[in-house]
Structure formats: structure tokens, C-alpha cells
Nucleic acid binder design. Structure first.
Length: 791
RNA sequence: GCCCGAGUGGCGGAAUUGGUAUACGCGUUCGACUUAAAAUCGAAUGGAAACUUCCAUAUGGGUUCAAGUCCCAUCUCGGGCACCA
């Protein structure tokens, strides 16, 4: 007897799919389309891990499901290749990141093919390929032209280990998200994208997305819209007015002092001479304080500036303090403190012995102007690193930035020998002397003539998130050399219908929405939201329940699972069966064996000794008596095995179809297992097996293809018919006071006759003993085939 | 501190609209095949009882003919935010 040999079968089909370019997608006007993608991976040297497999398989199950349903499906693939791991490796070993990246991509591609994914390999993209980043630079220039990419000198998070600035989203608990080193604040001139320009729309449109509530809430909190007012306070002695932001302008009568952030601009005009030293010291201490220290010690600190302001409502003189509990980057960096209504102000007031006035609330119209403020800041995008997309900017001799003309794109990353950033904090690009100088055409404002001017290139590179903020659109025309994306192609395929990932809840998913709105405004995109549905999958942990990590030695390598003989189909199906897709799950090696046994049973149903399927009735006659034995539950008592199979076949089609639509992949697999168990009991017809193979194909495409080939069938998704879902006899549940007391097999038409049912039930010995003293009422629920007698 | 999730057998988990709790898988036990083992096939498997019941969905209350599901309170775990005025 032939045994199920997954590796042999899988090789055969993978070769076939590759040769046929089986998953190539082309636009067909009028045919409904579906586009799906996972969050493209960073191709690390370690290769695919089980988390990738879960993520990619979810996309693949949906991809194949929709293909089998006759939709025009596109499922591309790509690599997010710029970033620190390759660069740090380059610094350590001198190997060019370009080289390492090429090797890692080749490995990822090979592994993804080994998993049998239905990928259109002609749509493979790579963010560090000049063919790609040429258009990342083009995107930057569009933002630059509209003033949405701008430079600003401000205090920024700086990682002393990686020698680069970090965005707010890249600082986790006061530490660098990559190396874990404590970050500090440094005043620097940096590039920003003005994401705040779109804050309102980004917030408002969240509710229209088919995204998990968790992600939507996180984005809303991140944007953090607050409605309030700005109020000006005169400063005694003629210093510039202090403008504060408050959400409670109605409490102004209780404002007994002002507090400024230590970084408050214009502080020098306010501080009195005798307080200068104390203020200067407090300010420098605050800047040195790490984020960790600020978080751990929430005890209020601050110093008096020696200056006073006038409360415009009470006309009283109130002192001005500086304190680090007021943040420079939010609102105006200054607050009116109302200790009677605000807990933090109260703490401060108590510590510094300031008055706490329980004043009445007033209508504030006379004192403030309405103002909306956001917690979200502009997106800091420059990085002092080599391995990133060069910012297409050059500086004239006065230091003014100029756009590199679009016909000079891409600005290609120059080859260097030493990848270390220099001591001044500039990236290794500063060492590429030849590359650094560039000639840019400049229009002379007086003569109107254009002349070439020598300039110096920007040595910062773009945050990797910029590269991934438009890649979904590149998929629609991945090798177009005329435009970032082709308008016709993108309007057919996009927006993306399904996006699946388990990371980047805020940053990436907010940035890509921001760029979408910008490019829609520029007339380049025909939609304002890039992603219709988001599936946010959970992590896979080690068998001990802990996170997998090399140092703990608990990593499961998916390729080992395949090569151990289980094969890709088992791995894929197991990871779908492991639990609800959006919950974390622990790897269980023994359960992998269980899924393998299931696929083996599928195989054995289809391939007997002669290598042909086992037709119903011809085999397993030894069990025919058992099979036709009436069962206790009374269901289908009269049905033949063929009739039983027909019912369960249609039930299974319905269950699997609906489960995949609901992303309940685990219960879809369970339903297939139940179906196979039934076929083992009853025997299987060709029709039974064909349906099995079709339903199995999204999960285990190689085995299913092998079965379908044997059965001489296409893979068109089967349909169920409701009429087969109703057996002629059904099981009636009888409860007394809500407790299960008996089950009856009744003809389905009897459910229409409540009186008949009631009489029959009351006449039964099992029920009689409970109802001797009479019944108060009966509740009959036809839908649930249930009757409850209340005594 | 605030905002979300979640808590069901020995284990991972089902129960989709308030209606048969524990689907499916793992593990365990027994049986068939075998000289034997593996593989495979079949049966049993929440706990106490013992032939008919009782108790079980984190804990305590409530609503209902009926609650894992709804309401109130409490505990535990996970995630997010964390001086945002």
C-alpha cells in the first residue's frame, strides 16, 4: 500500500505551480477582484519562523478560497529590507548590507515556495532595490513640495548606542526599540512629515474600517484629540504673553498659578534675575533626566521663575513656575494650573504651598478661543544611518534645502567601506566624498535663467516606515519605470481587501493611511483608505508558553517541521488549527502529529492498495452493520449510509465556507476532521471525496491537488443545498425546569404540531415521573427543537 | 492609575441569535492486527455517585421557563496607554 509521503507530493506540485506561473494575476475588467497581502517581512538571516508561517498561511487560505470561488485574486509578496540588523552586521563584519540582504531574500523566497503559497512571484518587491526606492524618493518629494516634509530644530529622542534619532513610536519604556539602550533627548535639526495635518480625518475615518476594535482604539488614543481653548495670560513687567491650552476653560476662576515646560521657548524673557540660576539648573537637569527616571519618579518637581501673570478672569496676580510634568510638545507647553479641579496641579500646589481655590465654573467665552489639540506629533523621519533610503535633498552654500530633480532619481546609496556613523552623528554617507557633491539646476530669481549650482547632499536616510508607507500600491504595477504606481492597475486592484499582520498596530498602519490621504488629495490615488479589512493575528509561543528566543533555546524552526517528514501541508493546517487566529497560542509538537494523522486519513481514503479511491459500499462492508445500526440519538434512523453522507457533506460545505468567511480557521479544520471521521464510518463515494479535497485545498493545497488529480476533478468551490441539511427525523430535546431529561427522535413535520409533541412527551415514562403533580406551563422552541416543561 | 480583552476537562480549545456545556485535536486506558514493536483501525475518557441522580464554564449575587452567554460586584491573567492639562 502506498503511504502518504508529503515531501514527494509537495515537490511535484510546487514545481508544477512554478512552471505554470499558476498564481499570476492580471486585470480583467468586469471580473470581481480580491487583493490580499500580509505585512511584508524583514528578511532576517534566521529565515522564516513559525509566526511568519501563521501570518502567511492565513493570507494563503483566503487567497486559495477566493480563487476556488472564481474571483480574480492577487496575492503579491515583498521584503522590507532597510534597517538596523543588516547595517549592524555590516559594521561588525564589513559585509555590504546589499549582499546580506540578497542572500536573505533568496532564502526567504525558497522557504516561502516550500510552503506552497499561492503567490504571484512576478510581483515581488524589495524596498532597498533602487528600482523601488526611486519611487520612495519621489513620494518624499511630493510631500516636500507641499510643505508636508519639513525641517525643524527640536528636542528629539536619541539613541547613543545606534547613534540615531528615533520617532516617538520607536521608544519603548524609555528605551530604543532595536537595541534596548536608554534614549536621551537631544536638540537637533531633523526632517518631519506633517501627519498632524491629517489628524482629524485619520481619526474620523477609523470608525468606517473593518479593522479589529483593539487596533482602532489604539489609533484613536494615539491621535488623542482634545477639545478645549487657548487663553492668553499677561505677564507682569512686559514679557510676551503666555498662551496656555486647557480642556477646562470654565475652571479659570480657580487658576492660581501657571506652569511652563522646562523647554518653553521664550523662557529667558520671563525669568527674573534672582531666579535665573535655579531655573537654568532645573532645565538642564530635566533634559538629562532619562525617560525611565521621569516615569519612575512621578513626584512633582519644579521651580519658581520669579515672575507673575495676571489671571484674566480674576485679575489676580499669580506666580509662574516651570515643571517637567508639563510637556513641551503638547498644546502650547504651558498650562494654567487649577489645583481644585486637577489632581496633578493639586499635588504640585500642595508641595509648593500654593493656593487651592474651589471657585465656581463660568462661561469662558470672553477669555479664550476654542482650540483642538492632538497628542499625535509630526512624524520624525530622518535617521543618521547608512542602510536606508537616501533623502533626495541637497543643501546650497547657505544651508537651504533643495529637492533633487525627479529626473535625477534614484539617489543611489553609494558604496562605502566603513558603515559606522561618524563622531558628529552623521551617517556613513558623509564619508562618501564623491557622492556628497551634486549639481542642481537653480533658477536665478533676477535673470530667470537656470544655472547649475554645486550643492551638498543630505546624509540622513529615511525611516524604514516611509518605505513601507506605499508598498501596497507598488504591488499593482511592481516594475513600472514611469510611475510609482499605474493609475489603471491601481484603480482595478486597490484598495487592498485583506491585510494580515501581527505587529505595527499604530505606526505603520497610521502612516500608510496618512500617505493615502495625501496622495488622494494630490490626485494620485482614487481612494482615501488603503486597507479595507485588517486581520491582526496572534503570536505563536514556544511549547513552554514563553516567547520563542534563541537565547532560551526554545525556537521551533518551521522548516525542520517540514523536513522531519510532516511536510508543508501539515505545518500549514496545524497552524490554522492551533486556535483562533487572533489569539496567542503555544506550540504543541504532539498536536502537529495529530494533524498529520488527519491528512494521512484523507490520503488513505482516496488512495487504496491499487492507488484508486475506495468507493462506497465496496469496502468496509465488515462495518456495514455497525453503520446501519440505529443510533441512540435517533437522528437519521431511517437513512442509508449514502443519505447520511449526503447530509453531512452538505453540512460540512456550509460550515467550512462560513467559517473561512468568519476567519474561524480552527473550527473549519475541525469540521473537516469530523467529516473524515464520518467517511471512515460510512465509507466514501467519489463525490464525498471530491468535496473533501476541494474544502481541504486552502489548508493543504498539495495533498488536495493530488487527490483532485486522482479524482479527475477541478477545484471549484462546492455549494451546499439547504434541502439536504434537514433530515427526515430530528432529535427533540426535552427539559423539565430547564434540565435535560430525555431526547426523542421525531419526524421533522411533527415539529409543526406543538400539541402532538406535548402529548407525546407527557406520555413518556421518563417524563411522567416529573410531571405527576401537574405542569405550570410548557415552552416549545421549534428553532432549537426543544421543549421545556415547567412544574 | 486609566482603557480594552480573557478566565470552560489532565492539556490546546468548541458552543455563531440566551436553548442539549465540554465539538475537534492532544494525552491516557482498553481492544484488534503483529513473534514483538511501530504504524494503522476500533472503543472509552469532566467529577462524584451507582442504574438513577447530583455537582461542575474564576468567585459571590441577580434577571429568566432556561445563563459559559445578559446585569451587578469581586479576584486572577494578558495587552495597550501612562503626568497629553
Amino acid at each position: 500500500m502506498e503511504r502518504y509521503e508529503p515531501l514527494k507530493i509537495e515537490q511535484k506540485w510546487q514545481k508544477k505551480w512554478e512552471e505554470e506561473e499558476a498564481f499570476k494575476a492580471t486585470e480583467v475588467e468586469g471580473q470581481p477582484k480580491v487583493m490580499l497581502a500580509e505585512m511584508f517581512p524583514y528578511p532576517s538571516g534566521a529565515g522564516l519562523h513559525v509566526g511568519h508561517v501563521r501570518n502567511f498561511t492565513i493570507v494563503d487560505v483566503l487567497t486559495r478560497f477566493f480563487r476556488q470561488q472564481g474571483l480574480n485574486v492577487m496575492r503579491p509578496f515583498g521584503y522590507d529590507t532597510f534597517g538596523l540588523p543588516a547595517e549592524n552586521y555590516a559594521i561588525k563584519t564589513g559585509t555590504a548590507p546589499q549582499e546580506v540582504t540578497a542572500v536573505n531574500i533568496a532564502n526567504f523566497r525558497k522557504q516561502a515556495k516550500k510552503l506552497g503559497y499561492a503567490i504571484d512571484w512576478s510581483r515581488e518587491i524589495n524596498t532597498s532595490d533602487p528600482e523601488y526606492y526611486r519611487w520612495t524618493q519621489w513620494c518624499f518629494l511630493q510631500l516636500f513640495k507641499k510643505g508636508l516634509a519639513y525641517q525643524k530644530e527640536s528636542y528629539q529622542w536619541w539613541c547613543p548606542e545606534d547613534q540615531t534619532v528615533l520617532a516617538n513610536e520607536q521608544v519603548e519604556n524609555g528605551k530604543c526599540w532595536r537595541c534596548g539602550h536608554e534614549v536621551e533627548k537631544k536638540k537637533m535639526k531633523q526632517w518631519f512629515f506633517k501627519i498632524t495635518e491629517y489628524a482629524d480625518e485619520l481619526l474620523e475615518e477609523i470608525d468606517n474600517l473593518e479593522w479589529p476594535e483593539k487596533i482602532k482604539t489604539m489609533q484613536k488614543n494615539w491621535i488623542g484629540r482634545s477639545v478645549g481653548a487657548e487663553i492668553d495670560f499677561e505677564v507682569e513687567g512686559g514679557a510676551p504673553k503666555i498662551r496656555v491650552f486647557t480642556t477646562r476653560p470654565d475652571t479659570i476662576l480657580g487658576a492660581t498659578f501657571l506652569v511652563l515646560a522646562p523647554e518653553y521657548a521664550g523662557l529667558e524673557y520671563i525669568v527674573s534675575d534672582d531666579c535665573k540660576d535655579a531655573v537654568a539648573k532645573y532645565k538642564s537637569d530635566a533634559l538629562k533626566k532619562s525617560e525611565i527616571e521621569r516615569q519612575e519618579n512621578k513626584e512633582k518637581t519644579g521651580v519658581f521663575t520669579g515672575a507673575y501673570a495676571i489671571n484674566p478672569a480674576t485679575k489676580e496676580k499669580i506666580p509662574i513656575y516651570i515643571a517637567d510634568y508639563v510637556l513641551s510638545g503638547y498644546g502650547t507647553g504651558a498650562i494654567m494650573a487649577v489645583p481644585a479641579y486637577d489632581e496633578r496641579d493639586r499635588e504640585f500646589a500642595e508641595k509648593f504651598d500654593l493656593p487651592i481655590v474651589e471657585a465656581e465654573l463660568i462661561d469662558f467665552d470672553a477669555y479664550g478661543t476654542p482650540k483642538v489639540t492632538y497628542r499625535m506629533r509630526d512624524w520624525l523621519i530622518s535617521r543618521q544611518r547608512y542602510w536606508g533610503c537616501p533623502i533626495p535633498i541637497a543643501y546650497d552654500k547657505d544651508g537651504n534645502p533643495h529637492a533633487i530633480p525627479e529626473d535625477q532619481l534614484p539617489v543611489v546609496l553609494p558604496e562605502v567601506k566603513d558603515y559606522k556613523p561618524d563622531k558628529s552623528g552623521r551617517s556613513a554617507l558623509a564619508k562618501a566624498k564623491d557622492w556628497l557633491t551634486v549639481e542642481i539646476p537653480v533658477k536665478d530669481p533676477k535673470t530667470g535663467k537656470t544655472r547649475m549650482e554645486k550643492m551638498t547632499r543630505e546624509t540622513d536616510t529615511l525611516d524604514g516606515y516611509a518605505c513601507s508607507s506605499w508598498y501596497l500600491w507598488r504591488y499593482s504595477s511592481p516594475h513600472d519605470d514611469k510611475a510609482a504606481w499605474n493609475e489603471k492597475a491601481i484603480s482595478y486592484w486597490e484598495p487592498l481587501d485583506y491585510y494580515c499582520g501581527g505587529d505595527h498596530a499604530v505606526a505603520h498602519l497610521l502612516y500608510i493611511r496618512f500617505w493615502c490621504k495625501f496622495f488622494a488629495d494630490e490626485g494620485h490615488l482614487p481612494f482615501r483608505e488603503p486597507i479595507k479589512r485588517l486581520l491582526y493575528n496572534g503570536y505563536i509561543n514556544a511549547p513552554d508558553g514563553k516567547k520563542m528566543s534563541k537565547s532560551k533555546g526554545n525556537v521551533i524552526d518551521p522548516l525542520d517541521v517540514i523536513d522531519d517528514g510532516y511536510g508543508a501541508d501539515t505545518l500549514r493546517t496545524y497552524e490554522m488549527f492551533i486556535g483562533p487566529y487572533d489569539m496567542d497560542a503555544a506550540w504543541d509538537t504532539r498536536s502537529v502529529g495529530g494533524v498529520y494523522r488527519f491528512l494521512n486519513r484523507c490520503y488513505n481514503l482516496c488512495f487504496d492498495e491499487e492507488g484508486s479511491f475506495s468507493p462506497l459500499e465496496s469496502v468496509r462492508d465488515d462495518r456495514s452493520e455497525i453503520a446501519s445500526e440505529p443510533r441512540d440519538d435517533g437522528r437519521e434512523r431511517s437513512g442509508s449510509r449514502v443519505e447520511k453522507n449526503t447530509i453531512i457533506r452538505h453540512k460540512t460545505i456550509k460550515k467550512v465556507t462560513e467559517d473561512i468567511h468568519r476567519y474561524n480557521f480552527n473550527t473549519a479544520v475541525a469540521a473537516l476532521m469530523e467529516y473524515v471521521n464520518e467517511l471512515y464510518k460510512n465509507g466514501a463515494s467519489k463525490e464525498d471525496l471530491t468535496v473533501l479535497a476541494k474544502l481541504l485545498k486552502p489548508f493543504a493545497p498539495h495533498l488536495a491537488s493530488e487527490m483532485l488529480e486522482k479524482l479527475d476533478s477541478d477545484d471549484e468551490w462546492p455549494k451546499w443545498e439547504e434541502k439536504y441539511l434537514v433530515a427526515d427525523k430530528v432529535e427533540l430535546v426535552v427539559q423539565v425546569n430547564g434540565k435535560l431529561r430525555a431526547k426523542f427522535a421525531v419526524p421533522v413535520e411533527d415539529l409543526e404540531d406543538e400539541k402532538k409533541i406535548t402529548e407525546m412527551v407527557l406520555d413518556d415514562e421518563r417524563i411522567k415521573k416529573y410531571t405527576e403533580n401537574g405542569i405550570k406551563k410548557t415552552i416549545f422552541v421549534k428553532k432549537n427543537k426543544l421543549i421545556n416543561m415547567v412544574v
